[in-house]
């Protein structure tokens, strides 16, 4: 398991979403809702799986619904990392 902090997780999410949404990373707003990036449900699931793989522990796919922005998800995941 990789010990990532919230800024690292946020950067990872920004880069991934920038590629998927064909945006510049600088244009990806971290307080914007995931569904406003026009990711379909399949792409959101793939993103959750890739995050899980990068972190090295399971992330419930519902996390993107309960923590619907990059900021919120990064904070939540960082807390999960710290608790392990």
């Amino acid at each position: 398991m990789q010990h990532r902090n919230a800024p690292e997780i946020q950067r990872w999410l920004v880069e991934k979403i920038a590629v998927r949404a064909e945006m510049k990373p600088a244009d990806v707003k971290t307080d914007q809702y995931f569904d406003e990036f026009e990711l379909d449900s399949t792409e959101a699931l793939v993103l959750a799986g890739e995050l899980e793989e990068w972190l090295g522990f399971e992330i419930p796919p519902t996390a993107l619904w309960y923590y619907p922005t990059i900021e919120q998800l990064a904070e939540h995941v960082a807390e999960e990392v710290a608790a392990r």
């Binding site: 699931l45 793939v46 796919p61």
Partner: peptide, 13 residues
């Protein structure tokens, strides 16, 4: 799926 999709992403799907 996008060409850079990882196995972990596919597995979640």
């Amino acid at each position: 799926l996008p060409p850079d999709t990882s196995r972990g992403g596919f597995r979640m799907l």
